[in-house]
C-alpha cells in the first residue's frame, strides 16, 4: 500500500490545511493512535492547480472570515447532475465540457438584449473575491472563495423593462458535453430563477472563478451565479442564457418535486424539507453538526427582501 513519490500525481496530494485538520477529525472519532501511524504515509502537501488568474481580485466586505473549505473538497464534492448524480461524478466526468468559445444570450423583457462572449463577461466588471458560505439543501455546507462581480452589473447593461419581474438562468443542454443529460433524473435544460430584486442584490454574483483560478468545469464553468442565502441548487451553473420574464420561471427542482423544492428556497432552519430537518448542517471538514442560520447567515443583508412574506408558504 506504500507508494513511491513518483507514483503520486500532484492532484492526489492532500492540500496542507485539509491534511492538518484530518488529524482533528480522526482524533475526534477516537483513532488518534492510528492517525499517528498514518501520518508517516502521507507526503507533505504543496501548491497545486492551474494559474491564479484572479490572484489580485479585490477583497470584499461581504466575505466571511470563516476558514475556507479546502480546494480539493470544493472541486471533488459537487452536485452537478448534468455530469451524474454522484458527488464525485462531476470532477471525474466534466472534462468533456468545452468552455471556450462560449456565449451567454441575455434577452427577454429588456431594452438591450445581447449575446455576450464569455471573455467579454469576464472583463465586464472588476472581479472580486467573495468568500461565501454555501449551504446545500442536503444538509452539508462549505465556505468557498469565489471570484466574480455583482450580477447587477450585467443586468443593468441589459436595461430590463418594467415587465421584467424575474430573471431566468438556463444551463447548457448538450449531451455530448454533459453525459448526465442522457438520464431523465431532471427535466433538461436545468432552469433556475430569481426575483429581479433578488438578482439585483449586491450579494448575488456572477461567478467566473474560485480560489483565484478560472472556475473548474465541475463547479459550473465558465460562468455561474452564486446566491449565498439560498440553497445551493438555486445557483445555476454553466449558464448559456439569462432571460428577463414577467412570470415566475418554472425551475428544475420545483418542476421535479414541487412539494419539496419551492421557487424561493431560502436557507431556513425553521422550514424543514418534507423528508429531513434543515435545523443543522455539517460543515465539510468538521466533525459535529452546527446550527443552520436563517438566510445562511445573510439575514442582515437580505431579510428585508422578504418583509411581510410567509416564509413557510413561500419556501
Amino acid at each position: 500500500m506504500l507508494r513511491r513519490s513518483s507514483d503520486i500525481a500532484p492532484s492526489e496530494i492532500t492540500p496542507r490545511d485539509l491534511f492538518e485538520r484530518r488529524r482533528e477529525f480522526l482524533r475526534d472519532i477516537g483513532l488518534a493512535g492510528i492517525a499517528a501511524g498514518a501520518s508517516a504515509l502521507v507526503l507533505p502537501a504543496f501548491a497545486q492547480g492551474p494559474a491564479k488568474v484572479f490572484a489580485n481580485a479585490k477583497k470584499s466586505a461581504f466575505s466571511t472570515t470563516e476558514p475556507a473549505t479546502p480546494y480539493k473538497d470544493v472541486t471533488t464534492y459537487n452536485n452537478f447532475y448534468e455530469f451524474g448524480t454522484g458527488k464525485e461524478d462531476p470532477a471525474e466526468r466534466a472534462g468533456t465540457l468545452k468552455t471556450r468559445p462560449w456565449t451567454v444570450m441575455v434577452d427577454g423583457e429588456c431594452a438591450k438584449p445581447k449575446r455576450w462572449d464569455i471573455d467579454e463577461i469576464v472583463r465586464l466588471a472588476a472581479v472580486e473575491e467573495r468568500i461565501y458560505r454555501m449551504r446545500c439543501v442536503e444538509g452539508w455546507s462549505m465556505v468557498i472563495p469565489w471570484n466574480g462581480f455583482p450580477l447587477s452589473e450585467l443586468i443593468r447593461r441589459a436595461e430590463p423593462t418594467s415587465k421584467a419581474k424575474y430573471v431566468e438562468f438556463v444551463t447548457l443542454n448538450d449531451d455530448r458535453q454533459m453525459p448526465g443529460l442522457r438520464s431523465g433524473v431532471l427535466e433538461w435544460p436545468y432552469v433556475e430563477g430569481l426575483r429581479i430584486d433578488e438578482a439585483m442584490h449586491p450579494l448575488a454574483i456572477l461567478c467566473v472563478g474560485l480560489y483565484g483560478e478560472l472556475l473548474p468545469n465541475q463547479n459550473g464553468a465558465p460562468v455561474r451565479v452564486v446566491v449565498p442565502w439560498k440553497y445551493g441548487f438555486k445557483s445555476a451553473k454553466s449558464i448559456v442564457r439569462i432571460r428577463f420574464t414577467e412570470q415566475e420561471p418554472r425551475t428544475a427542482w420545483n418542476k421535479a418535486i414541487p412539494r419539496e423544492y419551492g421557487f424561493y428556497s431560502n436557507v431556513n432552519p425553521a422550514v424543514d424539507h418534507p423528508r429531513w430537518s434543515q435545523a443543522r448542517e455539517r460543515r465539510l471538514g468538521e466533525f459535529g453538526k452546527r446550527p443552520t442560520l436563517p438566510f445562511n447567515g445573510y439575514a442582515e443583508q437580505v431579510a428585508s427582501l422578504y418583509a411581510g412574506m410567509d416564509l413557510k408558504r413561500y419556501f
Binding site: 483513532l31 498514518a38 471533488t76 458527488k87 465539510l284
Partner: peptide, 15 residues
C-alpha cells in the same frame, strides 16, 4: 478502515 486510515474517504467521510 483502510480508507479512513489513509484519509481517502473524500470530502464527506461520514456520508
Amino acid at each position: 478502515g483502510v480508507l479512513m486510515w489513509r484519509n481517502e474517504l473524500g470530502a464527506n467521510p461520514i456520508e
